[in-house]
């Protein structure tokens, strides 16, 4: 097998998933609407005090992003598992980990990138300054792929179960903790005028660690769920 055919397999899986999502455009909006709504709940719950809202905004946006990505996570393998295309992917000569990475990439393009596009708007609603908004965007850019990559492991473990929903949250949320800490830490630091390069380096490190390591357990878990 030449490397050419491997990258071809990668991109054809990405293309297929994007195309499938494009055919069901309406479903793409749901996690995004959820994200915006969760963020909207906070001012209603804690009051409209601008000072307080500005202080908690990074955390609120990040927790909402976490929940939204969790919500959309289940779809990453579910339909392929149910209609049998996942079994065909396992049977191809290509390593499953590469195909998994392709599926996660497509999923991130469909769920992470929209969050990235909407969050500046929410940040403005919370009266965050523009240079802090850029830091928030960088953390989302580095952090949401990690969420997708880690979440994929748990989805692969639970995809064979009929009631995987709550279990998925229990499996995934503890693993999301480092991302949450560094991301909201970076935004907090930026808001108080401190340098943020340390946190951003840590997040990049986590991203590359996740890209290199998570496809294997995900592939192993998928094979287990299919057996």
């Amino acid at each position: 097998m030449t490397p050419d055919s491997l990258s071809k397999a990668f991109f054809s899986v990405v293309r297929r998933d994007l195309l499938l999502a494009y055919r069901h455009r309406a479903e793409l909006i749901n996690p995004l609407a959820f994200f915006v709504m969760v963020v909207t709940m906070f001012p209603l719950a804690v009051g409209a005090d601008v000072e307080l809202l500005r202080r908690i905004a990074p955390g609120v946006i990040w927790v909402a992003a976490l929940l939204a990505s969790l919500l959309s996570m289940d779809a990453i393998f579910r339909s392929d598992f149910e209609d049998g295309s996942l079994e065909l992917m396992v049977m191809t000569p290509h390593p499953l980990s590469v195909l998994v990475l392709a599926k996660v990439t497509a999923h991130w393009l469909l769920s992470g990138v929209p969050l990235l596009l909407v969050s500046p708007l929410l940040a403005v609603m919370f009266d965050i300054e523009s240079d802090v908004i850029s830091v928030l965007l960088i953390t989302l850019l580095l952090g949401t792929p990690v969420l997708s990559l880690i979440g994929a492991i748990a989805v692969a473990l639970t995809v064979g179960l009929r009631k995987g929903g709550v279990l998925l949250a229990i499996l995934v949320l503890p693993l999301y903790v480092p991302v949450l800490i560094f991301a909201s830490g970076a935004v907090d630091a930026a808001a108080s005028g401190l340098p943020v390069s340390g946190q951003l380096y840590m997040m990049s490190a986590m991203l590359f660690l996740a890209i290199t390591l998570t496809p294997w357990p995900t592939a192993a878990a998928l094979k287990m769920s299919l057996s």
Binding site: L157, L171, P174, P178, L213, P217, A221, S225
Partner: peptide
Amino acid sequence: AVAILALVGVVNIPIIHYSV
């Protein structure tokens, strides 16, 4: 399944620990 999850957890525990 549990073994895979536990292995993922064991890689993550130091990261979680130090980030916390």
